[in-house]
């Protein structure tokens, strides 16, 4: 019976007296939502999250070479798994904090219809997508084209971007009429930010699970645990959704 009281006292204590910094490596695609989540986290717990952004591949190389991070928010599920297997992350701390949504996007407000039929009609010169070998969204885009049976037909018209950010720039600058981007790039608070888009159904490609994991140097770090708990909270999930991601149940 006393336990909840004790717990409440402990959490209050941890929020004031034991407030600490936690260094978080964040996949670049999650930059905007994470900045907002970090502000909410600081208010709710008193801990401060110091954010470092980079591509998941770079962050992986850095962590393996001694980077001072306590938590990793990856853009995929494999990287956290590999880090646990190699002993750089703590087993049992992995979970899916967000599910990425793929979108076909054009800067032109009339070009894309609600069903994405424009892909079949083929009335465009350039279709941008991120490199399937480098970026999970690129792979999902490729899988979508395969699932629609369009991969071969569109082959000469595909432009490959180094990342999903570059794919966005190709389309935003009008150099590609269409492109596969992350919904999070073009979606805010329940609506598209501009242009026209088709939200690609999750059934057309493998689900874009983004997992986090507590890293070895965060194992006994209280603020690291507090942050992973906060990322499961309703407030955090609300923010994540407002930026165009889904959350796991």
């Amino acid at each position: 019976m006393r336990l909840p009281v004790l717990f409440a006292i402990l959490t209050t204590l941890s929020a004031s007296a034991l407030a600490a910094d936690v260094s978080v490596a964040v996949a670049a695609n999650f930059t905007a939502p994470m900045k907002r989540i970090a502000a909410g986290f600081e208010q709710a717990t008193g801990h401060r999250a110091r954010l470092s952004f980079g591509s998941t591949g770079k962050l992986y190389a850095q962590i393996r070479n001694g980077a001072p991070f306590e938590v990793l928010l990856a853009a995929d599920a494999e990287t956290p798994k590999k880090l646990v297997e190699a002993g750089f992350a703590v087993a049992g701390t992995r979970f899916t904090y967000a599910i990425g949504q793929l979108a076909l996007w054009s800067a032109d407000a009339t070009r894309i219809d609600a069903e994405g039929a424009v892909l079949r009609e083929g009335d465009f010169r350039r279709l941008a997508l991120a490199d399937p070998k480098l970026a999970p969204y690129g792979r999902a885009a490729r899988e979508t084209l395969d699932a629609l049976g369009l991969a071969e037909r569109l082959d000469g018209r595909l432009v490959t971007a180094e990342s999903i950010g570059q794919s966005y720039q190709f389309v935003a600058s009008g150099n590609a009429e269409l492109g596969f981007v992350a919904l999070s790039q073009i979606w805010r608070d329940g609506q598209f930010l501009g242009g026209s888009a088709w939200r690609v159904p999750n059934g057309l490609h493998e689900i874009l699970r983004q997992d986090l994991v507590v890293l070895a140097r965060g194992e006994h770090h209280q603020a690291a645990r507090a942050l992973t708990a906060y990322l499961r909270s309703d407030e955090a999930r609300e923010v994540i959704r407002s930026f165009g991601y889904e959350v796991a149940n």
């Binding site: 490596a25 670049a28 905007a32 470092s52 952004f53 980079g54 770079k58 850095q62 001072p68 950010g165």
Partner: peptide
Amino acid sequence: LMMGGNIPGETQVLSIAIYNRVEAF
């Protein structure tokens, strides 16, 4: 970016701050 790890106040130089702004839209 590779060597520094994009850490605010320690290794987050101007060019990386620009990159962060772009990634945050």
